[in-house]
Design a protein around this nucleic acid. Structure first.
Lengths: 236, 236
DNA sequence: GCGCAGCATTGATCCAAATCAATGCATGGC
DNA sequence: GCCATGCATTGATTTGGATCAATGCTGCGC
């Protein structure tokens, strides 16, 4: 598990010759950011590759009509949308900061040059991109193949597994946000939680007790090819 | 526009030293495949990187209950899910071939080694991965932010633009498949097309006439950050 | 303490889309 | 020619989830 907040210790830089690492860091900055900050807007052309050192960022998609949904959360120590930065294409999402966080900023051009010059760095970037691609595919399968209640149930099961507590799950942010991540309204999320009480869960604020995981699983048919978090054996 | 079917001319190999290219191709194979063939199942561990030389492949997601939806189509000259091949993680989708097609097969291990050794190849792979990631993000925004009818209308507009015929769009495959790509049933797709007649479209088999593009656009509010196909200025 | 703001729940209603069911319309095999 | 098969359309009905509206709860500022 990654715990460090020092830029030098980023998995991205693992195995890099020290000279290249200092090279990259010489032109980089660390930004400490308070909750509520918008890192960039959708449509912006990336100037920097942002990398989460501590805390997290949330990526939102907005429609022309102004509706806004959470697409995903990026946690330390990952890159924030390298797909946009490396191609120079405009961001498809807005990034906001939900908690006090620190980011490493590397000039986009500098990173591109370094990736082109250094196979190890390229390898790490490929790992991050691939991982993020797979998360999007999982989310699409989740949206297209399951009902709202199934999504909620599987979300809880995945959460409890990720948190190492088989008998409960602690919601990582407001229910309204989780609802939009799951592609439903907050009201429907609330009702889904109520109806899953029949399947052995109990809601207490942000904590959901899972009294009978097998029964819950029977109701929502979790699937490792949708809910699984890839084993992170590929260097990021 | 890419037209070639010869492996040596793949954009993936552009700029590569001839020695490296022949190196990769020495261990590669070309498969000619007939419609209906399943290239791999979801859950399989990738052995080869498949690359579309001519024709296309369709990627399907399946639920535990057996429901199946089209996630996306991959057309020449792109890589088929490099995210799985390069990480060695199991495929999240099944790949099927809808038309006579030819594929280049490169051993996964060989490709990984080559990518680690060759910055230009790595650059091309990064471009493909980034592009595919962005397509998935667009699809998620499409699913979460729009109604079924809006998705259908924007799909038609994007199609007509891509085909260079502002006054019509020709559906690239069966309506049932397109419906599942758009996350709706075939019945709903049919009804959406009917109701869009009010917005100036006419359906004739696989061809949809667009009599009044501005009016159609007004109904579905297309958005380049959802419907746009990235400019392909980044080498694939 | 009080009152306010923001999030969450609950209820009532509406609506979009799914489902169920029947029919139409091609295409291909024999 | 005819019938089977698969895709598409259309209609009737149901339903999952959205929307609208009211209320509750909690923490916070003053």
């Amino acid at each position: 598990m990654y715990e460090g907040a020092a830029p030098e210790e980023l998995p991205l830089f693992r195995g890099l010759p020290a000279s290249r690492r200092t090279d990259l860091l010489r032109n980089a900055m660390v930004h400490s950011v308070s909750p509520g900050t918008v890192l960039f807007e959708q449509g912006d052309v990336p100037n920097f590759q942002l990398i989460v050192l501590t805390g997290s960022a949330q990526l939102f998609g907005r429609s022309a009509e102004g509706r806004e949904v959470l697409i995903e959360a990026v946690r330390a120590p990952d890159l924030i949308i390298p797909a946009a930065v490396l191609t120079g294409a405009p961001y498809l999402m807005q990034a906001r900061v939900p908690e006090p966080s620190r980011f490493l900023l590397i000039h986009a051009a500098v990173l591109r040059a370094a990736v082109d010059a250094d196979p190890l760095l390229a390898h790490a970037v490929i790992g991050s991109l691939a991982h993020q691609f797979r998360r999007m595919v999982r989310q699409i399968k989740n949206l297209k193949l399951r009902t709202a209640t199934q999504r909620v149930g599987c979300y809880l099961l995945a959460l409890s597994k990720r948190q190492g507590t088989p008998d409960r799950a602690v919601l990582p942010f407001e229910k309204t946000l989780i609802a939009s991540e799951l592609g439903i309204t907050r009201e429907s999320f609330s009702r889904a939680l109520s109806s899953l009480a029949q399947s052995g869960i109990r809601v207490d604020g942000q904590t959901i007790a899972i009294l009978d995981a097998p029964r819950l699983a029977a109701e929502c048919t979790p699937d490792p090819l949708i809910d699984g978090a890839d084993a992170e054996d590929f260097a990021i």
